[in-house]
C-alpha cells in the first residue's frame, strides 16, 4: 500500500470553470478534505483519491490560480514542478478549446524531458443548445496528445470526479514504472 502525493495544476482559459470544478471536487463530502488559501491568493485544494482495484491512493494538491492566470509571472511560480495536469475548456466556447494546445505546451514546458500525465475536461455540458465543440473532435485531439478525455457539467454535478480519479490512476502507473526502473539499476 502506498500513498502518493501529486501536484495538480489546473489550466485553461478564464471562465471555463476551473475553480468551480476544483471546489465541487473538494466539497464532495469526503473525509480527508482540507482547503487552503495561500498567501499569494491562490487556492489549494487537497484531497485523497483512492485508486480503484488497488490499496493505493494519491493525495492530490490542486493548485488553482483563481483567475490570476492573466499575470503570467505569477503563473510561472504557481506551475513550478507539476506532477499532473487538468486541462479545462468550455464546450460552448470554441476558442477555449483551441487555446488548449497553448496551455498544454506551457504546462509541459515546466517539466522538460519528463512526462506529464494529463486529462482534458470539457465543462458546461448542461448548456447543450450552445455546444460549439464536437466531442469527437476533442477526443481525437486529446488522443493525439496522450491525454484522457472527459466531459463534465459542474453545474449539474455530473462526472466531476472521473478526471481526478483518472489522474490518480495515471500517476500511480507512473510511480510503478519508476519503481521498476529503480529495481533494475543494481
Amino acid at each position: 500500500m502506498v500513498k502518493l502525493a501529486a501536484k495538480c495544476i489546473l489550466a485553461g482559459d478564464p471562465a471555463v470553470g476551473k475553480t468551480a470544478l476544483a471546489q465541487i471536487f473538494r466539497s464532495d463530502g469526503a473525509h480527508f478534505q482540507k482547503n487552503y488559501t495561500l498567501t499569494t491568493g491562490v487556492d489549494l485544494v487537497v484531497k485523497t483519491v483512492p485508486v480503484p482495484d488497488t490499496g493505493d491512493s494519491v493525495e492530490l494538491f490542486i493548485f488553482d490560480s483563481a483567475g490570476k492566470e492573466l499575470f503570467s509571472e505569477m503563473l510561472d511560480k504557481l506551475w513550478e514542478s507539476p506532477n499532473v495536469l487538468c486541462l479545462v475548456y468550455d464546450v460552448t466556447n470554441e476558442q477555449s478549446f483551441s487555446n488548449c494546445s497553448k496551455w498544454l505546451e506551457k504546462a509541459r514546458a515546466q517539466v522538460p524531458g519528463t512526462s506529464l500525465p494529463g486529462v482534458l475536461v470539457g465543462n458546461k455540458t448542461d448548456l447543450a443548445s450552445r455546444r460549439a465543440v464536437d466531442p469527437a473532435q476533442a477526443q481525437a485531439w486529446a488522443l493525439g496528445q496522450g491525454l484522457e478525455c472527459f466531459e463534465t457539467s459542474v453545474k449539474e454535478m455530473e462526472n466531476y470526479e472521473a478526471p481526478f480519479r483518472c489522474l490518480a490512476t495515471q500517476f500511480l502507473h507512473l510511480y510503478r514504472e519508476k519503481v521498476e526502473l529503480f529495481q533494475g539499476l543494481v
Partner: peptide, 21 residues
Amino acid sequence: KHPPENIIDGNAETFWTTTGM
C-alpha cells in the same frame, strides 16, 4: 515495499523511494 530502512541495510539493491512532490 520500499521503506527508508533500505538506505542503511548495506545493500544497494534495496532502496527507499520518494512518493511524489
